[in-house]
Design a protein around this nucleic acid. Structure first.
Length: 100
DNA sequence: CATATGACGATAT
DNA sequence: AATATCGCCATAT
């Protein structure tokens, strides 16, 4: 429970216009290997709370969702915050990464 | 209680 | 460098 609560708080702490990675959240939550849990928790928690789940991408700065299953939505939400997708589908984490 | 699962990440091939 | 495989750990069933 502690882990999931911290995850929600961390997600809520991601500044507008920035993105975090699953592994980063997991690490900050005290679980270096919990990247997968973060994704799972986002699934369930984002439906219960209103988390900015779309500010979380995988460590390559890419959206993990498949096109047609949320990819387009997330990409659009991020672009709405001023985040530009570089090479077609990747975000420049150096530039938009949280806590660079 | 045991097994399955996952919006990942690191390592091995 | 690109792809495949394994590990990790909380939830769900």
């Amino acid at each position: 429970m502690d882990f999931s609560r911290r995850v929600t708080e961390l997600i809520n702490s991601v500044p507008h216009g920035k993105v975090a990675t699953y592994g980063q959240i997991a690490r900050l939550a005290g679980n270096r290997r919990g990247a997968r849990l973060v994704s799972y928790l986002l699934h369930s928690l984002s439906e219960k709370y209103d988390l900015p789940w779309y500010r979380v991408v995988n460590r390559s700065g890419k959206i993990s969702l498949k096109p047609g299953y949320g990819y387009e939505l997330q990409r659009q939400l991020l672009e709405n915050e001023g985040i530009m997708f570089g090479n077609g589908d990747a975000i420049d984490l150096d530039k938009y990464g949280w806590q660079t």
